[in-house]
């Protein structure tokens, strides 16, 4: 396997670095804002969208983005109200999206078991091309600008949404910006990591970073570093052991999180007691 020429692997390596960056940067917001279940739903919607794209023969990435956005548009306002319905709707949409994805794939004759179809499910080393890399680069750049330009607003919103609102920040705008960036991150990383597992790349590196730092700025820097390392290590693991890339990345990032739980300075006193407290219990 390792005899493959580098230029052949280069788009995948770049893709892995960029996907790690965008997903785990969004993770810092998603985890803090308690949006995990929406994000999870969006990643499955992206999978259904990609399957739909294959069915009607358009670029699966476009339809993946559209499906993820549609989900954000439905779930965003619902969860914002923090009413009971949102959990019910999330559970409903989650299963519907998976089902739709499989139906779309099965409707396309001869497609269901092909590499292309499987790659949107659990990712593929070789499905990443330079177009993907370009899109991921653009997204990375936009995200970087967003975080730098709106850093003070983001910190205020992450600390406490109502207080941020009461200080004159339009928190709704940031809430939806986070959802839409997450939709892009999920949809564009889909080919590499796969729709079933891409959300782990959003949550795991951030959760690891949260174990070590009390400073939001440090988390914002370390989380993408962990995300990128997870992707590169997963990539290597996939190459040498012939694991599916998405699974390899998730195993690496989940192992990182498990280790961080054990060694975390934040949990020194009574790991089992404190681990029950939810990280974001005061976020409203």
């Amino acid at each position: 396997m390792t005899t493959l020429p580098l230029f052949f692997l280069l788009p995948s390596i770049l893709g892995a670095v960029l996907a790690g960056f965008v997903c785990s940067t969004m993770g810092t917001f998603v985890v803090r804002m308690n949006l995990s279940s929406i994000g999870y739903c969006m990643s499955h919607a992206a999978f259904a969208g990609a399957a739909f794209g294959i069915l009607i023969s358009i670029d699966p990435m476009i339809s993946a983005v559209l499906f993820a956005f549609a989900t954000a548009l439905v779930l965003g306002p619902l969860s914002e109200k923090a009413r009971l319905e949102s959990n019910v709707v999330i559970g409903f949409l989650f299963s519907v999206m998976i089902a739709l994805g499989f139906i779309f794939l099965s409707l396309k004759p001869g497609e269901a078991a092909t590499g292309r179809a499987l790659s949107i499910l659990w990712g593929s080393l070789f499905s990443v091309n330079y177009d993907n890399v370009l899109l991921l680069s653009l997204l990375s750049f936009a995200l970087l600008v967003f975080v730098i330009v709106f850093y003070k607003e983001l910190v205020a919103v992450m600390f406490h949404r109502k207080l941020a609102e009461s200080a004159g920040i339009n928190t709704k705008m940031f809430y939806f910006a986070v959802l839409f960036f997450t939709g892009f991150a999920v949809a564009l990383s889909l080919k590499l990591v796969g729709g079933l597992l891409v959300f782990a790349l959003i949550v795991n590196p951030t959760s690891t970073a949260y174990q070590f730092f009390y400073d939001f700025k440090k988390i914002m820097i370390i989380s993408p570093v962990i995300g990128i390392l997870s992707c590169l290590l997963g990539f290597y693991l996939s190459l040498i052991a012939d694991f599916p890339i998405g699974a390899a990345i998730v195993i690496v990032s989940a192992t990182g999180f498990a280790v961080s739980l054990i060694v975390s300075p934040k949990r020194k006193k009574g790991f089992f007691l404190k681990s029950k407290q939810k990280l974001d219990s005061s976020y409203k």
Binding site: V155, Y210, Y214, F216, I219, K266, K274
Partner: peptide
Amino acid sequence: EIEPRAPFL
């Protein structure tokens, strides 16, 4: 009440 592990200075 702020959670003990809140990541803010």
